[in-house]
Amino acid sequence: MRVLVTGATGAQGGAIARSLLARGHRVRALGRRPGDPAAARLIELGAEIVHGTLDEPRSVARAAAGVDAVFVAGAPIEGGADAEVRHGLIVAEAVKAAGGAHLVYTSVASADRGTGIPHFEAKAAVERTIAALGVPCTILGPVYLMESLLAPASLHALRRGVHAVPLPESCPLQQLATDDMARFAALVIERRRDFLGHRIELASDELTGAQATAALSRVAGREIRYAEVPLAEVRARSEDLAAMFRWLARGGHDVDLAALHAAYPEIGWRRFEDWAREHLAGALTRAVA
């Protein structure tokens, strides 16, 4: 199949592009900078890079022409709610103009529950736009990503032996490995008829802060302690993020992991500790003062 992947040089888009290429599909990646090292790696794997951005409707329309499916990840929180909605409309209109292409949009779990969290509400608005345009689509709703621990501040704290999260230590948190999401998105694209018109929420594992810290300690081979980051510190950086962590602390996502994993065992859902061994083992064993 021919698939356009937007944001293919980012974490989510890159994971889906690599997953599709590994499964023998033809990937066209929309890239802002043709010389980007991430784009170069995708070219080595067989992807076609098309220059353009989600702010340029014509470039998106050109990229979407002739493809069987379009994968678009919701914008990161730093992009802002207005950009999220604008980009969603541009992609949805391009897919509709392409005629018959299957749009796979990565929103966020619980976006349809009226949480009041700004970036959740922006993604909900994109979902409504897609529905209003009548575009053949599947909506994926990921929960909190395990890859959040790869952010520089989180990595620095872990190297100092601290797992710092703006949630109480006893609070359960559902999490998703990006590779699991990529495999699921590839499955959706390959089995279009089974998933058209569906909204599916995705989660790999669920554990409390104490359980996650114990897992990180086992991976590190040394003690990692938990530290609850004051919500005021988060609010000073982003009211949007603070609203999300307030909501997560009150219960947050409620994906039925057992049912999801039983329905789609081929994904090989990742446990948090296994993900940490793959992505964090090196960083955790290099302690800093």
Rank of each mutant, 00 (worst) to 15 (best):
I139W: 06
R193S: 15
A232Y: 04
V50N: 13
G31H: 10
D274V: 15
R18F: 11
H87Y: 14
H163W: 04
A111T: 09
Y264N: 08
R18E: 14
T285E: 14
A157E: 05
G46P: 07
A124T: 03
P172A: 06
S107L: 10
I90Y: 03
A164K: 09
G209K: 09
L187S: 06
P168D: 10
S154C: 08
R28V: 15
V162K: 04
A276S: 09
R286T: 14
P166H: 00
F195G: 01
A63M: 09
L260T: 08
A22K: 02
H261W: 03
S204Q: 08
G209N: 11
D274P: 00
D240L: 07
F120Q: 02
A262S: 14
E273H: 08
H102S: 06
V72P: 07
G80I: 06
F272C: 07
G14A: 06
R192A: 06
D274L: 13
A157K: 11
T129S: 11
V27Q: 13
A39H: 05
A258I: 03
R86F: 10
E127N: 13
T106C: 14
G268F: 04
V219Q: 02
V288E: 12
H51S: 10
S59I: 05
L167T: 11
A151D: 04
R58I: 00
V95F: 14
L284E: 04
L54K: 09
D55P: 04
A249G: 14
G114Y: 15
L155H: 01
S238M: 10
R26E: 15
M146A: 06
T208Y: 08
A262P: 05
I49A: 08
A276N: 05
R86I: 04
A243C: 02
A182W: 14
A227T: 09
R271Q: 14
R192N: 06
L140T: 05
T9R: 00
D179N: 05
A94F: 09
A97I: 05
E84W: 14
P230K: 10
P265A: 14
E190A: 15
E278L: 07
A124F: 13
S107K: 05
A132M: 06
A212W: 03
L260S: 08
L248C: 08
E56K: 03
V27I: 04
A177M: 05
A214T: 12
E127I: 00
A177E: 08
I77F: 10
L202C: 13
E239K: 05
R2F: 01
V219H: 03
L42F: 09
A64D: 07
E206G: 00
